[in-house]
Amino acid sequence: MQRRFAPLTALLVMLAACGGGSEEAAKSGAEKSSGEAGGEVMVFAAASLREAMEELGAGFEKETGVEIVFNFAGSNDLAHQIAATRGPDIFLSASKAWMDTVQSGGRVLPGSRRDLLSNTLVVVASARDTSTVAEPCALATMPFRNLAMGDPEAVPAGTYARAWLRSVQCGGRPLWDAVQARVAPAPDVRAALGLVLADPRVIGIVYKTDQMAFADRTRVLYEVRDGPAIRTVIARLTEGRGGENGARFYEHLVGATGAEVFRKHGFDPLPAAAP
């Protein structure tokens, strides 16, 4: 069974239609939730997880025949979408703060939230770029046109990047002050990487896992080893339409199979916290 990816507009229309008020629809929803195996599983996942999630979704579909529908975007956008809709079964956020937002709205199924993965920031350039960065302060004087990153006001990858740049002191002032005017904010980390790929005069700060996904077209200028702790958080959502299938796919993600696939794509799986 082929996986489907739901663009935002179509997704919202579909969810609104599914949540309509006819008795027949309500009865159908009640039967599904009371019952049995459930339907397709809808997963909202941070854009940085795309390749790993596609692989895990394909494996689960092959094993079970259950269709997995993905919606990839910045965690900030996904959190707002979840607040406005009903139907998603699982949320994977690249930021604890955006999971907090969803949880404060009563949408996280109790007991299902956990820190799942850790990641690392890297400064990247096009594979055609021959520059080197021995230490972070070199960024202050490099002749790049723009520094691409997720929007630091909302996108987790950009928030992490700004926090790191502010923590680095160069000549008595934060590195952020020296590069801020050249920052090109993007709606998610993949869009930031796209700016790097499109223009050799642009460098970027993205997750290590995103660079790995495009390793043939990019190169790492600097790996951030002293940056903020980056965590991907997972939770099941209340009012998910996948029923028991949503629970099964969640276990697939947090179990040994998920850890193996995430590790292959450069993430560091985290052990479950003690109860």
Rank of each mutant, 00 (worst) to 15 (best):
M1L: 14
P7V: 00
A10C: 08
S22G: 13
A25V: 10
A30M: 14
S33N: 10
E36S: 14
G38E: 14
E40Y: 08
E40N: 14
M42G: 07
F44H: 13
A46V: 00
S48G: 14
M53C: 05
E54M: 12
G59V: 02
K62A: 15
G65V: 06
V66C: 07
F70C: 01
F72Y: 11
S75Q: 07
A83D: 11
T85Y: 01
R86M: 12
G87L: 09
F91E: 04
F91R: 05
L92I: 15
A97S: 11
D100Q: 05
Q103R: 12
S104F: 02
P110D: 14
P110L: 09
R113W: 02
R113Y: 01
R113A: 15
D115I: 02
A125V: 04
S126M: 07
S126G: 10
D129G: 00
D129E: 07
T130M: 11
T130G: 02
E135M: 08
A140P: 08
N146S: 12
P152A: 12
P152I: 12
E153S: 15
T159F: 01
L165Q: 03
R166F: 04
S167Q: 10
V168E: 13
G171Y: 09
P174H: 10
A191D: 12
L195S: 11
D199L: 09
R201E: 14
V202Y: 06
I203W: 06
I205G: 02
V206N: 06
K208H: 12
T209P: 00
M212Q: 09
R217P: 02
A229K: 13
I230C: 01
R231K: 13
A235P: 11
L237V: 03
R241P: 03
G246T: 07
G246I: 11
Y250Q: 08
H252R: 08
H252P: 01
H252L: 04
A256N: 08
A256L: 08
A256T: 11
T257G: 10
H265G: 00
G266V: 01
F267G: 00
A273T: 13
A274R: 12
P275Y: 00
P275D: 11
